[in-house]
Design a protein around this nucleic acid. Structure first.
Lengths: 208, 208
DNA sequence: GTCTATAGATAGATAGAC
DNA sequence: GTCTATCTATCTATAGAC
């Protein structure tokens, strides 16, 4: 058949992205069929091939888009050069950015295995870039003596896992506000690297 | 055809479990076919139905088995009643148990979504039981004043995510020994709950 | 205990009409 | 820009032979 009255390519493309993201996150990439996506968009499966050459490219595009946005937003948020303040900015940013994008984050962590080699390399490189931001902060803080970093690599991975884990339990409208959650995580991150936080009881740490 | 020379039901069952675990973890439950499993086991797909009524039950059985083992081993490892020591025992146990079972852990976290309602309820209950062990430790430690727990629920989820995350980067034969990794994570967990560890530089925390 | 054969469903992707 | 129709491949699960 011909063009449907009122149909718009850009609207359809955006709907395909939105629906695919939700379905991939909920059911897993492999379990989702092009027909399923098309059905929720309100078109036939073949119409999707006007926008993406195949199913794999939908996934790659979603992941790349997410990582690009994450990196760009992160650089914008890290405004100080003080390692402790920078670590807190990073922790707060990571919670704030990811808590409202549970599906993107879930996909980025769980569907790397569904990527073919080329796409995998692209996404892995972007992720590594993000990890490096945190590692640099930890190295700086450790070198200048304001943090006690057991191992920059392990600590970075531990912090990222801890922060990203918020999406496994957080549901909007729960007991805690996003700001309160941000505070709790920031406090734990700082403490985990040997920093005595302002929000904790006032203390004085004396080397003996 | 008839029975194959030397074939043994228990060996086949165990092979089905082993192969399914590896394939589900690597490719995702939905992406793995019964034929694929059978092929790696060295039988025809129909032979699997002698051991499991369907694909779903293979997954349920693998997850249940993992959670049962985890809970049993955990209870055996927590030998002290002191909250701080108990938290350290828990952290070390979680790393030690999970670091050598990457596929089971990955499945337990990522394929809950592939479970049908009944199986989901079973596995979710076991996981909740495990989380409660850690929450109790944190509540005890906070009540007795030896820890500064921002929020027992959030702290428990953060610690679990942090510890479980070891499997996203650890590969055997790497730069760090398992013991060293255990030390680093235990140190971060304790510090994150406001405990000054023995392994850190000697310090004295004085409330002013 | 495992096989062959097959039913019945569904997948990704393409051709060509409008 | 989207449709219908279809090709080809693959899937889960079962029936019945040995």
């Amino acid at each position: 058949m011909a063009r449907i009255a009122g149909s718009d390519g850009e609207v359809t493309r955006s709907e395909i992205r939105k629906v695919s993201l939700a379905l991939f996150a909920q059911c897993g990439y492999a379990a989702v069929s092009m027909r399923q996506i098309a059905s929720q968009v309100g078109v036939q499966a073949s119409a999707i091939y006007q926008y993406y050459p195949n199913k794999q490219q939908i996934l790659v595009s979603l992941l790349q888009n997410h990582m690009d946005g994450l990196l760009k937003a992160c650089h914008k948020e890290l405004t100080t050069s003080d390692p402790v303040e920078r670590l807190e900015q990073f922790a707060r940013f990571h919670i704030r950015y990811n808590i409202n994008r549970p599906d993107e984050v879930f996909l980025s962590y769980m569907e790397l295995r569904s990527l073919e080699p080329e796409g995998f390399a692209t996404i892995a490189a972007l992720r590594s870039k993000y990890e490096t931001i945190l590692k640099s902060i930890l190295r700086d803080g450790d070198k200048s003596g304001v943090m006690k970093v057991d191992d920059p690599h392990v600590s970075a991975m531990a912090i990222l896992a801890m922060l990203t884990g918020v999406n496994t339990w957080y549901r909007s409208g729960g007991r805690l506000s996003q700001k309160k959650i941000e505070n709790i995580y920031a406090s734990m991150v700082l403490k985990s690297q040997g920093i005595v936080t302002d929000t904790a009881d006032k203390e004085e740490v004396i080397h003996v």
